[in-house]
Design a protein around this nucleic acid. Structure first.
Lengths: 211, 211
DNA sequence: AAGGAGAAAGAACGATCGGTCTTGTAGAAC
DNA sequence: GTTCTACAAGACCGATCGTTCTTTCTCCTT
């Protein structure tokens, strides 16, 4: 009998499958892309595909998991840089804006996946939730390093803006959306609650059009 | 030959089809729901379905179009009430928060549809874009009635928060998301640019936790 | 009374879906 | 040299996809 578990880790065919699936899933949606097309464009046979992945569902979660690890790597690198948390948050914001302005941007892969898998019990949906939980925690930690006030509200606000700019960058003007987003992030970094009253610190170099 | 165009407008079968499709598309996603299941749950035969809709695609656009008209009706009613624009924006915010806290909330139907139909030329995608263009224009008009400063940044910010809270309400805690969203909207309604510097008006009854 | 439209009921269409199986072969490990 | 593994190539499976068709029956209109 033939083995059902690949032993060597790198496995060129598996890598090709994941790369192809990533490009196709992200660009066209998950349900719209069949196994047939993936194995054709990855130049891999059906048997090879099913040796590396028990089924399409596992390919989908691997696709999301890999993006998650990539983003996580970026963030941990930024955090490890030792810069002030506020600067790291600004850098994250800039990175997001850069992404949405890149040709071929189709929104957040996780939000798109959740739209196709609304069932909360589904493995794909759970993968999305896990990523979002990590993201919210990460942002909350950064805000906690920046302020004495409870950071939960600020980080939720940040994530909300992020989710919004993903939609706006995909379905509207990415340039304008990026500006609005960065303004919003800057506002979050300047806001303080003083005696229960909302305060906004004026920037050192006051900009012109604000939102 | 049999007619291919339904004459009488209301057509009970058509209404049943649209209602069923709305419930199924919204809850399970569009690609996940086949024509088979729709006609079964709508208690309608295949032939009847194809008499009212040239194909599944037209049912999808009709599904989105109907939601669009419903929301549009709500908004025009609010605008026609003659209340101050700021109050209308607050009311819109409250309505959104109420929606996301309703059991069965699965996010924005248009954002979800766009995730499944990324091709900008596709009729479904275009329907989404049309709705979003109307929404942004409507919000911009309301902000224009409230402030002397250019409203585009504010309205884009508002829409960004709305898109974000749709995701957060669906994939996270709807209660917390609603609070964060309303705080954000309130902030937009209190912000002013004075001499090019960001200013936030303290609320008459200052609240406690802010973001 | 006659005619026609709307709808029910269901067979059938080609295509594609995700998934399994067989066979052959090249290469690395033992 | 033998064995084992990864992969190629492709036939094949049942199920479901969206769609078209025929037939019959019931209304509503004229």
């Amino acid at each position: 009998m033939t083995s059902t578990e690949p032993s060597g880790r790198p496995s060129e065919a598996r890598e090709r499958l994941l790369n192809t699936a990533t490009a196709l899933f992200y660009a066209a949606g998950i349900h719209s892309v069949g196994v047939e097309r993936i194995i054709a464009e990855a130049k891999v046979t059906r048997a090879t595909f099913y040796r590396h992945f028990p089924g399409k569902e596992d390919l989908i979660t691997a696709y999301l998991e890999r993006i998650h690890q990539h983003i996580r790597g970026q963030y941990e690198q930024a955090v490890a840089s030792g810069k002030p948390a506020a600067d790291i948050l600004r850098e994250i914001g800039r990175q997001i804006v850069e992404d949405i302005r890149t040709p071929g941007f189709r929104g957040c892969a996780f939000l798109n996946a959740a739209a196709e898998y609304p069932d909360a019990d589904h493995p794909v949906h759970q993968t999305v939730l896990a990523h979002r939980a990590w993201f919210l925690t990460t942002i909350t930690d950064l805000f906690a390093q920046t302020y004495d006030s409870p950071p939960e509200g600020l980080s939720r606000h940040f994530v909300m803006l992020r989710d919004g700019v993903m939609a706006a960058g995909c379905l509207g003007d990415p340039i304008a959306a990026g500006e609005t987003f960065l303004n919003g992030v800057e506002g979050l970094l300047r806001v303080r609650t003083v005696d229960g009253v909302l305060r906004v610190h004026a920037s050192d170099a006051p900009e012109t059009t604000r939102s």
